[in-house]
Simulated assay, not measured.
Amino acid sequence: MSGERELTAKGLATRERIVEYAAAVTRERGAANTRMECVRVAANVSNSQLFHYFPQGKAEMMIAVARYESRTILADQDARLRTTRTWRAWDEWAEALLGHYDENGSRCGLAALLGQLDQDAPEIREVLAGLLESWEQAIAAGIRSMQSARKISPDLDADTTAGTIVTGILGGIVQMTVTGSTNRLRATVRASIATLKAARQ
């Protein structure tokens, strides 16, 4: 967004700190109820600082929050999935994922992202679409690692399977935000692992 490339290293660090606090406020209150003043207080900055880094106001800050949440989610998923070569690693991925949503519920980064979607936020949709695509790629890479290790049949289409898994996770998260329960998400993740194990070579 505007001004990012003109900031000093100190300025970039300050902006990132504000974004981190904005993300925390958004997860707690929801995008609709997040106010610039709430972020200003949480980050302990002045109004002039806040609008120096986000001159376009809340809309610009929310895009920065979406990118931050996307990076955070992908960093965790990439670390867990791209070199997954054992069934134990897949089980640990599943339990870590479910544990995260059991602990955070709708106060999670992806739920916060979904809460920002509307017809007037094409940048948010772009960020979310990129996140889902990269997440699918990470899962597909993990499946291919298992195929290279001769633990999953090469007949399994890694890309299609990864897309199905991410779609299921996304649906489970949406339902969680509506019902407050992770039961469907848990069933979906465990069914995904069962599908992979059913394709053992």
Score class of each variant (00 low, 15 high):
R5A: 08
E6L: 12
T8C: 05
A9S: 14
L12S: 12
A13P: 01
E20R: 15
E20M: 14
R27E: 14
G30E: 08
A32P: 03
A32N: 09
N33A: 12
E37G: 02
A42V: 00
A43H: 02
S46N: 03
H52G: 02
F54Y: 09
F54P: 01
Q56G: 06
M61C: 02
M61Y: 00
M62P: 03
M62N: 02
S70P: 01
S70W: 01
T72W: 11
D76L: 14
D78S: 10
R82V: 14
T83V: 07
R85L: 08
R85A: 13
R88D: 15
A94F: 10
A94L: 09
L97H: 12
L98V: 03
D102W: 09
D102N: 10
N104G: 05
L110H: 13
A112R: 00
L113H: 08
L113M: 11
L114N: 06
Q116E: 14
L117M: 09
D118E: 07
A121E: 11
A121S: 10
P122M: 07
E126T: 11
E126A: 13
E126N: 06
V127W: 01
L128N: 05
A129N: 06
L132M: 10
W135D: 10
E136M: 10
A138H: 03
S145P: 00
A149R: 06
K151V: 04
S153E: 02
S153R: 02
D155W: 11
D155T: 09
D155M: 09
D157C: 03
T161F: 10
T167K: 12
I173V: 12
T179N: 07
S181M: 11
T182I: 14
L185V: 04
R186Q: 11
R190Q: 14
L196C: 03
A198Y: 15
